[in-house]
Amino acid sequence: MNRLLQINWTDLQYSADEFSREVYTFPLHIRILIGITLTFVVVVIVLLAVILGSRIHKTRRARTREELRRKYQPVFMELLFGSDEPFSEQDPKRLFDPLDLQTPFHQEILLEETIHLHENFSGETAARLEHLFVKLGFHEVSKRRLREKRWDKVAKGMRELSLMNVREAEPLISPFLKSKNDILRKEARVALVNLSVKDHLSFLSRETEPLTDWDQAVIYSMMSKMPELSIPDFSAWLDSKNPTVVEFCISMIGAFRQQESLPILIRLLNDPVEKRKLLAIRALRELGAAAAEQPLLDLYPSANSEMRREILRTLEVIGSERSLQPIHQLLLQPVSDLPLAIQAVRSLLATGPRGVQLVEQLSVHGDPKIQQVIRHARDKRL
């Protein structure tokens, strides 16, 4: 039996040589097909091995993740809800396995779990999680991400530091305002709004890249959730060399009803940049600035169609009897712009009883087109 299992390597080598000689006796196209087939088989075997290895690796990591979550769930419950002792005086590290805090994958799972919990809590519980994030050294992990070469790793680090309110990271994030990567600039702006202690928008003074509509919407959303005392005076950046910063601040003056900036907005009605004029008109409407009525009436003749529509919408809010005659004269002219004429009727109606009377006269004695405009303006469904 042992002889049967023994291998004669000399015979095997001879057989291999014999096989190779036999192959070379085949026609060229047969040899090519054999070569392609063998290559395909090898590639499939390697691919299957890679897929199987990847599957095993992912399964192990998922199992480890679930085990760690079960292991530390009571620990998080104890730290967040189980003790009346001030959290700043506690040592949470004693409840964690040092090996889990040193193993990169285990550390990453615990870091992500801390952030996940923070997203679902507020108040004192959220503050405890922020302290825990720092005491376990996770903030250093996020800081190291800022030095990564991959932009997605850097963005992740900024997001983590911002979410967990690690204010000491502000100087490390500021340089990314000048990054060539648009996503990193966006993340840096959001992080700085959240991390700045006094002036949340101080970065606007050194902002050189354009603020996109998305940037402006995100910053406004964040500022609207802050206490009123945290809202800065947006007129401070109206002399910025960055046009988008100026435009954003004009809009914010109106959005946050900063009445002290009213004289500046009225001066902006004479700005050579059309978009700034337009934004100033909208801001004046949000402020309900009656003082802007005459300047708007003076601007109307030289304004373009869009700006005229915004002026009339603003006069609908702030207009008085001073606007009666100018708007009435507009409606006596042939209607060339239907939406503009409809808005003019609404603005005239808003001036009071005298305006309503003038509209009634036009609806009776006016030409058919102006009568149609009046019907549209009075239709509550439009």
Rank of each mutant, 00 (worst) to 15 (best):
R55Q: 04
R322Y: 06
F96Q: 06
H131V: 09
V75A: 06
L184F: 04
L287W: 12
D182P: 01
H376V: 00
L348Q: 06
Q258M: 08
E207G: 10
R65S: 07
I327P: 15
P104L: 02
D215A: 04
L33H: 07
L117A: 07
T37I: 09
H57I: 00
L47N: 15
I109R: 08
H29L: 02
R346P: 14
K277V: 09
G157Y: 13
R381G: 01
M1L: 11
A283W: 00
A377H: 10
V245K: 06
S320A: 02
Q325K: 14
R147G: 00
L161V: 12
W237K: 13
I30Y: 09
A217Q: 13
N194G: 05
Q90E: 07
V218W: 01
P263E: 02
I30T: 08
V193F: 03
I173V: 03
P175S: 07
S122K: 10
I45Y: 14
H57N: 06
E160Q: 08
R185Y: 05
I318H: 02
G53D: 00
I173A: 01
A280E: 03
L117M: 12
Q216G: 14
I36N: 04
L262I: 14
E170G: 09
K93M: 07
H118Y: 05
V273S: 12
S336C: 10
R144S: 04
Q13E: 15
R346W: 02
A155V: 03
D233Y: 13
Q6W: 15
F26Q: 06
Q361H: 05
R285G: 08
I264V: 15
W214H: 12
L340Q: 14
N2Q: 13
C249D: 11
A126T: 03
T64E: 06
L229S: 11
K143Y: 09
I231S: 03
S347I: 12
L362T: 13
D367S: 07
V44G: 07
M158E: 01
A283M: 06
T212W: 00
G35Q: 08
G82Y: 03
I45L: 13
H131T: 13
Y300E: 05
R147L: 01
E148P: 06
E306S: 11
Q357M: 11
A155M: 02
A344F: 12
T64Q: 10
L12F: 15
V154G: 01
I327K: 08
F176I: 05
V245D: 04
H200M: 05
P334E: 04
R167Q: 10
V41W: 08
Q357K: 13
L28V: 06
L324N: 11
I32W: 04
L132P: 00
